[in-house]
Design a protein around this nucleic acid. Structure first.
Lengths: 224, 224
DNA sequence: ATATGCGGTTAACAATTTGATAATATTAGA
DNA sequence: TCTAATATTATCAAATTGTTAACCGCATAT
């Protein structure tokens, strides 16, 4: 998932589209829009958004149909989906949620509240606890930039630290080299092939602890 | 997380407590209740619920205070929290969501909708932790790139892993050699006839488990 | 101003692993 | 039985990663 989250909004009312777009952009999201159901599906496939906001009533395919279609494809099984609806019909709302949506908002939309809900959903999805990670005798303090192992502080350089902190943020998960580059170096910077390896090497050396495993052809993972 | 999800409800109105409790139990959840903020904190610590539903206005500590206190503790950083409120005050709602709640519902509560929202939250939570396929004693963890059989980790090379993961994604389905080539090798790459066989062979060898069946003249399928 | 050290990157090469192939054996099914 | 399809095995080239040393830029100390 990209660092700047992409949101796709689909609604046939241009005014609503604009209001929502404006407010979400103000929150720092990248916003793309669609005017109807079919367009929404096309845009979704093209841009792979992190969140899709679907109006229920749209010409062509309605929101629930769009949700159904997208959810059937592996690429959109994890994508966040929020429904918007003019009708506060209980049955429709329940049906919407059971179709696989993550939330259901009734119009009139209050932009600030929508933004809060969007933030809440992304917060939950990232579940990045910004504090101290601790695994056994190893402590990683992401605020103070300090590693502590067996009660000894270990100094890592910034890139080394960020790399370790990233891997340790989800123990066991294999991070692809691409993911690592995006998260630690950013999408703009381009560095050579061996850069990651060299940093990994330094971490392994300084920590003198076998906690980073290579998964050849895939990436690296942290585990004790 | 336990298989039966535990939900803690905190509200000072006994009627509401009962209605919600009844409906969530009907959905198969285990429900515990608290009559005020302090009780909610105690119960949360004691029972470690998966979801906490907090009324905002309660005697003693109000819902937002409770949420704040719980969120400060590591044990409750991941716990789902929903606020209930009689006031549909926009400012309070935004504040509630930013305190770290996952949803905010205004009274009057519609029990069915609450249940749907609860289901949606748990559905989302499960999706996240699940890149894992499990069949009996065999686990295939796509995120960790690990096969686990009878509590032993088995390391497969990338192609082997992807091949097994593909077959196991639809147990019983026979995958044509062509399908396999397209999914695992991609449409560009062209490899010889025996390549798939050799990989299948290696998987069978490493797993020491008869889970891949040859369908002569057609393809391969996964089944236990 | 000059020297020193650190962080970050790269290049070059070594070490390792993977994946494809060829050659041969075996099997399932007509 | 006979044949096409698959299994098996060893081998080798290619891909990937590990390791080391060198380089550059920057900050800080001399």
């Amino acid at each position: 998932m990209s660092i700047v989250k992409k949101i796709l909004i689909a609604d046939d009312e241009p005014d609503i589209l604009e209001i929502i777009k404006f407010n979400l952009q103000a929150e720092g999201y990248e916003v793309i829009t669609a005017k109807n159901g079919n367009e929404a599906i096309d845009m979704a496939k093209q841009y792979q958004p992190d969140l899709i906001i679907l109006d229920i009533m749209m010409p062509g395919k309605n929101g629930i149909e769009v949700c159904d279609i997208l959810r059937m494809q592996p690429a959109f099984q994890e994508t966040l989906i929020i429904f918007l609806s003019a009708l506060s019909d209980e049955v429709t709302e329940i049906k919407g949620l059971e179709t696989g949506a993550d939330d259901y908002l009734t119009k009139p939309i209050k932009p600030k509240i929508l933004a809060s809900k969007v933030n809440a959903l992304f917060r939950r999805l990232n579940k990045e606890s910004n504090g101290v990670l601790q695994y056994g005798e190893l402590k990683i303090d992401r605020e103070k930039y300090i590693i502590n192992y067996q009660n000894e502080d270990i100094i890592l350089a910034r890139k080394e630290f960020e790399l370790l902190a990233l891997l340790a943020s989800k123990p066991g998960k294999v991070f692809l080299r691409n993911e690592i580059l995006n998260q630690v170096w950013g999408t703009e910077v381009i560095v050579g092939d061996r850069t990651i390896d060299v940093h990994i090497r330094k971490i392994r050396q300084k920590l003198d602890l076998d906690c980073i495993t290579t998964v050849k052809g895939v990436g690296y993972k942290f585990e004790l």
